[in-house]
Deep mutational scan, measured.
Amino acid sequence: DESNKPILLPNESQSFERSVQLLDQIPSYDTHKIAVLYVGEGQSNSELAILSNEHGSYRYTEFLTGLGRLIELKDCQPDKVYLGGLDVCGEDGQFTYCWHDDIMQAVFHIATLMPTKDVDKHRCDKKRHLGNDFVSIVYNDSGEDFKLGTIKGQFNFVHVIVTPLDYECNLVSLQCRKDMEGLVDTSVAKIVSDRNLPFVARQMALHANMASQVHHSRSNPTDIYPSKWIARLRHIKRLRQRICEEAAYSNPSLPLVHPPSHSKAPAQTPAEPTPGYEVGQRKRLISSVEDFTE
């Protein structure tokens, strides 16, 4: 099969070098950035008060330690540790928490760990991170309901609301924008112990962030949302095809390698009803078989 044979790379090609550099910018793992907010007593309706908090309760602090690993920003190499735009020179604080497994990295933009500057009256330095995160974990210690939209931002799609209760338990629920209701189930609340709260809140936030990324990708319907490693695979396959075309153009005697095509017509299947918005969006999480067989 010609399409699977190794090909020689061009010795000097600026377009090839640019493509390789672009490939280096696509990590081999999925990345997520999640905002974390603490809401104190009497702050449920005040964005400024929430963003001005420099610490929270003892249970909130224990919750943070379970979310991930504490890292010092100045020691991080952005090409190895995903920071979601946090500055490593102290502009966004000294520490944050991050978490990773074999296929993804997540960083938490924690408002109480970011510096509260006197010259920044409206807390814009914090909002440029927190307001651009799709998902926020809100530790609501106010005793009042927290409403979506209290923290203004164009991309605040989903809130994971943590409400501490007695007996070391917590109520965990989801809020989302109306255009996200087909992807996020907000109907079920959970009672979770303090011990298990970081794991549950983190998983709910990661799932909500993946759904938000799919939702946000609708602005470019021709580019369905893939995982990062599938995006790398697609980029490599496009690069291979372009090299083959350039080689055939410079030397017409060489065969032009095309991806294999299936001449056999697909079997006719009964027509199915058109899937609704929710089903269609969830299918976009699934990769096409052509990603692996071309």
Rank of each mutant, 00 (worst) to 15 (best):
G131E: 15
G93K: 15
V135Q: 00
S263W: 10
V158G: 02
D125P: 09
K228A: 07
G66S: 03
N140A: 00
Y58K: 07
V200K: 00
N4P: 14
L9A: 15
P164V: 01
C244G: 13
E294H: 08
P221I: 06
G131W: 15
L70Q: 09
S212P: 01
L9H: 10
Y277D: 14
L23W: 07
Y167F: 11
I103C: 10
L22C: 06
P266K: 08
A189C: 13
N140I: 00
H129R: 09
H262M: 14
E62I: 03
W99S: 03
V88L: 12
R69E: 15
I191D: 01
E278V: 08
S46H: 06
V135K: 00
H109V: 05
C98I: 15
I110Y: 02
L48S: 10
L8D: 13
V200H: 02
D166C: 03
W229I: 04
H109G: 02
R218P: 04
G143A: 04
D30S: 06
S136L: 03
Y60M: 00
R232I: 03
V36P: 00
E245P: 12
G149T: 11
S288Y: 06
N251C: 13
D102A: 09
A267S: 09
K74M: 04
Q14E: 11
K228R: 08
Y139Q: 00
M180H: 02
T274C: 13
E91H: 11
H258C: 13
N140W: 00
A35I: 02
L86G: 15
Q21Y: 10
E12I: 07
Q105G: 04
M210W: 02
R242D: 14
Q94A: 09
S250W: 10
Q105I: 08
M114G: 03
V81S: 14
K126I: 04
A265D: 11
E245H: 08
K178W: 11
R238E: 15
C176V: 12
I151S: 02
T65R: 15
I71W: 04
R240A: 12
I151V: 13
F95D: 04
E12C: 07
K74L: 03
T65F: 04
P252H: 07
F292H: 13
Y60F: 04
R202N: 01
L23E: 12
V172K: 00
A201T: 10
A231R: 08
D141T: 01
K178L: 07
I224R: 06
V188L: 11
V188D: 09
V107H: 14
V162G: 00
L197V: 12
I137V: 03
I191E: 04
I110G: 03
Y97L: 11
T31E: 15
A189M: 14
E47G: 02
T31H: 08
N4Y: 11
Q175N: 05
D92M: 07
S136P: 01
Y38P: 00
K121H: 13
F146V: 05
A211S: 03
I286T: 14
M204L: 04
M210A: 02
V172I: 12
D185W: 01
N45Q: 09
K33N: 15
P260E: 15
K117T: 12
V214R: 02
Q14R: 10
F108Q: 01
Q213H: 10
P260F: 11
R232E: 11
F157D: 10
V200A: 02
N251S: 12
G42W: 15
D179E: 13
W99A: 04
F95K: 06
T222D: 13
V138P: 00
Q268N: 11
T163E: 10
A271D: 11
N220W: 04
N45G: 10
S250F: 10
T31P: 03
T274Q: 10
F134S: 02
M180A: 04
L37G: 01
E72N: 09
P164L: 00
L256W: 11
F199I: 04
E2G: 07
G280F: 05
I137W: 00
Q94Y: 15
I71S: 07
I191T: 05
C76E: 08
T96N: 04
G84H: 13
D101Q: 02
S52V: 01
F95A: 05
D102G: 06
R234C: 05
I34C: 01
P27R: 05
L197Y: 00
P252E: 13
I161H: 04
I103A: 05
A248Q: 07
S193P: 01
A267K: 07
A106C: 14
V160E: 00
S52N: 11
K74V: 10
I110A: 03
T163F: 02
A271Q: 11
P226K: 07
K117L: 13
L113Y: 04
V200C: 03
R242W: 15
S57K: 01
F16K: 04
D194A: 00
S219C: 12
A205P: 00
E17P: 03
L174T: 06
D125K: 15
Q77T: 13
G66K: 03
Y29P: 05
N45L: 04
V162L: 05
P198W: 00
A111F: 06
E12F: 06
H100N: 14
L254F: 12
E245L: 10
Q203E: 13
R195W: 04
H100L: 05
T31F: 11
L113N: 04
P6K: 08
K117A: 12
V192D: 00
A265I: 07
C124S: 14
Y60V: 00
S250G: 10
S193Y: 01
T150V: 13
N196E: 02
A231N: 10
Q77A: 13
P164S: 00
N220S: 07
C76L: 07
R69T: 15
Q94D: 07
S288M: 08
G66N: 04
E54P: 03
S261R: 10
Q21G: 08
S227R: 08
Q25E: 15
S253Q: 14
Q105E: 13
I137G: 00
L165Y: 04
G68S: 04
K190R: 14
L197C: 14
F157Q: 13
K127G: 05
K228E: 11
S219W: 08
H235Y: 12
S253T: 12
P6M: 06
E245A: 08
L67R: 00
G93Y: 07
C124T: 12
I110H: 04
S136E: 01
N132W: 04
A106R: 01
G56I: 01
V192E: 01
P10S: 12
R123F: 15
H109S: 03
F95C: 05
L233V: 05
L48R: 08
H215R: 11
A211M: 11
R240E: 15
V39S: 01
V138H: 00
T269Q: 13
M210C: 02
G143C: 03
V257Y: 10
C124Q: 15
R234Q: 06
V188M: 12
R234G: 09
V172P: 00
A211R: 02
L48F: 08
L48A: 12
L64I: 10
P259E: 14
M180L: 13
V36F: 00
H235I: 15
Q268P: 11
V119Q: 10
Q268E: 13
I34L: 03
G276W: 05
L48I: 12
S261N: 12
V119K: 11
V81F: 14
K74S: 09
N156T: 08
L22T: 06
D118R: 15
A35E: 03
R234K: 07
